[in-house]
């Protein structure tokens, strides 16, 4: 009984973790370049709804994904203009993006609630037939989930080991010094924001195309906000983000399992635990390991060469 429960739980974790992972990695790209985007929730929502609308209109999964990403990219561009070009306080710009995304997604999705779409299903089970059953359950995921984990590794490699990543980090750590070294700060920040927005949008599309196979108003349900906090938990490192996403995904995957099992457990306390864990981690990091040092120094600070500081 317990073993079946655990196996069923483990099999659902990757798909729960993938949207967290995509959004968190996207925000890590942003923040390593010195930009904090609180609008992830809105970008995810708009991508989720547009993907569903395209699917309902008969579009294939690939087209739906592309459409969702394009919609998310347009919204991200609004944030990029506000935060990078107009130098609006990043918290404020992020909140505007959040509200625009949630508001517009509610608008365009109005009347299409709860209409199911085919979505993206898992790879054929036959591929995994030769494996032990539990492992096959865990590995039998859809393509997009695999892509999510692949992207995390790729982004980690680019940020930590390439010249592109080096310049990105320099912009986030010390924009004036990066400027002096010939890096175009605004261009790198714009690029980072847009790239991060694409990943947030893929995360949103994953929610509707893989997760729910439908659109409901409010279905992002705070995952974009959680991603903002998970960046801290991952210490701005895309590889660690995999672990953080698996933690949050595991807890979220656990709740439906528990509810369907009929066990009498404090569900909301269990749901609360990853938030408490993140808070505890933040505080412990501050207490011991010079934790805040992992945060890019110029995070949240707009840069203009003519402003002498």
């Amino acid at each position: 009984m317990i073993a079946t429960l655990l196996a069923a739980w483990a099999a659902t974790i990757p798909a729960f973790a993938a949207p967290f992972l995509l959004a968190t990695v996207g925000l890590i790209i942003n923040e390593r370049a010195g930009v904090m985007n609180l609008g992830a929730e809105g970008i995810m929502a708009i991508a989720a709804v547009v993907s569903v609308l395209i699917s309902l209109d008969g579009g294939g999964v690939g087209v739906a994904l592309l459409g969702g990403v394009a919609a998310g990219l347009v919204l991200t561009a609004v944030f990029a203009v506000l935060a990078v070009l107009l130098r609006v306080d990043q918290v404020l710009a992020g909140l505007v993006t959040f509200a625009l995304g949630i508001g517009i997604s509610g608008y365009v999705g109005d009347g299409y609630d709860n209409q199911t779409i085919p979505g993206l299903s898992a790879l054929p089970t036959s591929l995994f037939g030769w494996m032990p059953k539990t492992l096959a359950g865990v590995l039998d995921q859809d393509v997009l989930t695999y892509v999510a984990f692949g992207i995390a590794v790729l982004v980690w490699y680019i940020i930590e080991h390439t010249d592109l990543g080096l310049r990105l980090r320099a912009v986030g750590e010390d924009a004036p010094a990066a400027d002096a070294a010939g890096v175009n700060v605004a261009l790198y920040r714009l690029g980072a924001v847009l790239a991060g927005g694409v990943l947030c949008a893929v995360a949103g599309a994953h929610l509707s195309l893989v997760g729910s196979h439908l659109w409901v108003d409010g279905m992002v349900a705070g995952r974009g906000w959680i991603a903002v906090a998970m960046v801290t938990l991952a210490r701005w490192n895309a590889l660690r983000a995999i672990a953080a996403a698996l933690l949050f995904g595991a807890i979220q995957a656990l709740v439906p399992q528990l509810l369907s099992s009929g066990l009498n457990v404090p569900v909301y306390f269990i749901e609360m635990s990853p938030y408490l864990a993140t808070l505890a981690y933040l505080l412990l990091a501050g207490m011991f390991a010079n934790g805040a040092d992992a945060q890019p120094v110029d995070l949240g600070r707009p840069y203009l060469r003519e402003e002498r500081r």
Binding site: A229, M272, L282, G291, A292
Partner: peptide, 21 residues
């Protein structure tokens, strides 16, 4: 003040803790 924890993240997380509680 004491641990240099970014208040944007902490106040945000505390929303969920209160709601779940």
């Amino acid at each position: 003040l004491k641990l240099r924890a970014n208040e944007v993240v902490t106040t945000l997380l505390m929303n969920y803790v209160a709601y779940m509680l």
